[in-house]
């Protein structure tokens, strides 16, 4: 009798597993509709649901730099029917004091892309290179205003890291998002911004803005002529990134099904074109490598943020 039960449950289990996925998957997006995270999520899930043959329903849950959504994801049932998007804030929220989790509390599926920070000034300003700008700031510490997308945001951290690496003192002006900061730069209300190249693309192409340097390890495909800070001799590497995650403890079979499907979606021509159009650097990492990367970032932020922000 007992053996029968075991066999039965095994059969049942295989049947159930073979059937995965057999109902819609819920996909949690940690940001408001319209932003980079939202667009990436909605695009990749739209392609992946064709591959998985079940609908993937996207849901936006905003607040606390994405911490609320990630908490929700972390505490969801690890049955493969709830997954979500995780941005760089996954490695930051604990350091910022918003939440008590880090990358290790999730089963990370894959990294999708990175967007570097970029130091941008007005085109009619006297600085042609990042060195000139930094030398200028050195002569007038604490007077040059630099806009970012909010206190504790990744672009704020970018400006703080630049300060530290170049030994300069800036005036940080937090705005409510990157777009208002760029608007203030265009209007001449601030001197520079440290947001993503995507946000300043329109201004650069129309000849109103100039990117001096990007803060990633490699140049961005969007502006291949712009040097990196590392090339110029400043040890700064700050980029926003995004990937996919599941609650911890998902069955390996289910994990593999999802990983394969989303890898296929990632490789699709539509999605690659989307990433490049939107100015994101495609940067696939598989689950294991993504985890190592996210933990390294986590350790870096835990070290840097409390000192820089005085939290």
């Amino acid at each position: 009798m007992r053996r029968l039960l075991v066999v039965l449950s095994l059969v049942l289990a295989t049947l159930l597993l073979a059937a995965y996925p057999d109902k819609p998957i819920t996909f949690i997006i940690q940001a408001a509709p319209g932003g980079a995270s939202d667009m990436v999520s909605r695009t990749i899930t739209a392609i992946a649901q064709e591959i998985l043959k079940v609908p993937i329903n996207c849901t936006n849950i905003t607040g606390a730099a994405g911490a609320i959504a990630m908490k929700r994801l972390q505490t969801s049932k690890p049955d493969g029917y709830t997954m979500g998007y995780v941005p760089v804030e996954l490695s930051m929220v604990k350091a910022l004091g918003y939440a008590d989790f880090g990358p290790e509390d999730f089963d990370l599926l894959m990294r999708i892309m990175v967007i570097p920070a970029a130091l941008t000034v007005r085109a009619d300003s006297p600085w042609k290179t990042a060195q000139q700008f930094i030398e200028y700031v050195k002569t007038r510490p604490g007077t040059v205003t630099v806009g970012n997308s909010g206190p504790g945001s990744i672009w704020h951290i970018a400006a703080l890291s630049l300060e530290k690496a170049a030994g300069i003192k800036l005036v940080h002006v937090p705005f409510d998002g990157a777009a208002p900061a760029v608007a203030a730069l265009l209007g001449g209300h601030i001197t520079a911004v440290t947001v993503s190249p995507t946000e300043v693309k329109a201004g650069v192409e129309s000849g109103q803005l100039r990117i001096l340097a990007v803060m990633s390890d490699e140049r961005t495909p969007l502006f291949p002529d712009v040097p990196t800070m590392k090339e110029l001799g400043y040890d700064v590497s700050i980029a926003a990134w995004g990937g996919l995650a599941l609650p911890k403890g998902v069955d390996p079979e289910v994990y593999k099904t999802l990983a394969d499907a989303f890898k296929k979606a990632y490789d699709s021509e539509t999605f690659q074109k989307f990433l490049l159009d939107r100015g994101m650097t495609p940067a696939y990492l598989d689950g294991q490598k993504f985890k190592e990367f996210a933990i390294a970032q986590y350790n870096m932020f835990m070290e840097f943020i409390p000192k820089a922000l005085g939290k």
């Binding site: 905003t62 607040g63 606390a64 609320i68 908490k71 918003y98």
Partner: peptide, 9 residues
């Protein structure tokens, strides 16, 4: 915020 994550934003 009374220590509540929901109130941070």
């Amino acid at each position: 915020t009374f220590g509540r994550m929901e109130l941070l934003s």
